[in-house]
């Protein structure tokens, strides 16, 4: 293999890895905050991608300009899901863990079915936008512009999330995460923090959906393959760690690309899960996990 080919594989892995990281960020945030694994994560990503497509089709608005709109829309979704389902699921007395698994799992199946009913099973894509089908060539290595933009937005989003964690709200999030009962004593409204955490987490996912919408097709099942990787990313990086999600996302992207290049492409997931199991054996809390 030529060095340009190797660079191409590594660049491809990096660009995809950053997308994986961005998809996983919201999942990690919500889990870190309240120990709830959102099994409808992929389906919410799918909804964001449909929203991008529908707005683009109706108004011709470029996906990049839709970022704030979709983020707000998805934040609303997140808050609504927390208030309507999660808060109630958490208030049960027995088997709380099981109830929250089933409630988000059921939500996932419902959203998928509803999407198929509303949008049909056809694959759709945003075919025309500022960045569409553009590619940069740097010394024989090709960098697709939509993916590059997605990577930059991903890094900005992570920077934003880390900045938020330094604000008062961020400290309240951290405090609630550490001791959800004690924070009530110092006047933090736990329920409100949880709802805002969901809003923030799902808004981040919305940003990922916008960027994916720039180069990926949309269909009712598009979330599933990304969600699976997002769960691995969160577990690998360490539950609740944003830095962990970023590093693990890139690691998974690279391992996937390298496995596909060196071995058979059909085996690329094996590389990902092999790394995952090794990390679990050596460091069960994940690369950056604190627990």
């Amino acid at each position: 293999m030529l060095s340009a080919d190797i660079a191409q594989v590594l660049i491809g892995g990096l660009l995809m890895g950053l997308i994986y990281a961005l998809v996983a960020a919201g999942l990690s945030l919500i889990f870190g905050l309240m120990d709830v694994v959102n099994f409808a994560h992929g389906e919410l990503l799918m909804l964001a991608m449909y929203a991008v497509f529908i707005i683009w089709q109706a108004t011709g608005m470029d996906p990049l300009l839709q970022i704030p709109l979709i983020a707000v829309l998805l934040a609303g979704c997140g808050v609504a899901i927390y208030r309507g389902l999660i808060a109630r699921a958490l208030s049960v007395q027995f088997n709380r863990g099981m109830v929250q698994i089933f409630v988000t799992f059921g939500l996932a199946i419902f959203i998928r079915g509803a999407a198929q009913f509303a949008f049909g099973g056809e694959f759709r894509s945003v075919s025309k936008h500022i960045l569409a089908n553009r590619t940069l060539e740097i010394g024989g290595v090709f960098v697709p512009v939509p993916q590059l933009a997605a990577s930059i937005v991903c890094l900005l989003a992570f920077a934003g999330l880390l900045a938020i964690s330094r604000t008062e709200f961020g400290r309240a999030l951290e405090a609630t995460r550490e001791d959800r009962d004690a924070v009530a004593l110092i006047g933090i409204d736990r329920d409100r923090i949880f709802a805002m955490g969901w809003g923030l987490g799902i808004a981040t996912l919305g940003v990922a959906g916008v960027m994916l919408g720039g180069f990926y097709y949309v269909g009712p099942n598009v979330g599933a393959s990304f969600a699976l990787i997002a769960y691995v990313t969160v577990a690998l990086g360490g539950f609740g760690s944003l830095t962990g999600a970023l590093v693990a996302g890139v690691l998974i992207g690279e391992v996937e690309a390298i496995t596909a290049a060196v071995f058979e492409p059909s085996l690329k997931q094996i590389g990902v899960y092999a790394i995952y199991m090794v990390v679990l054996m050596l460091r069960p809390r994940g690369l950056f996990g604190k627990l």
Partner: peptide, 13 residues
């Protein structure tokens, strides 16, 4: 090239 169906990315392929 045998690849995994429904992969999120086919760039290496």
């Amino acid at each position: 090239i045998r690849y995994r169906a429904n992969s999120p990315s086919l760039s290496t392929e």
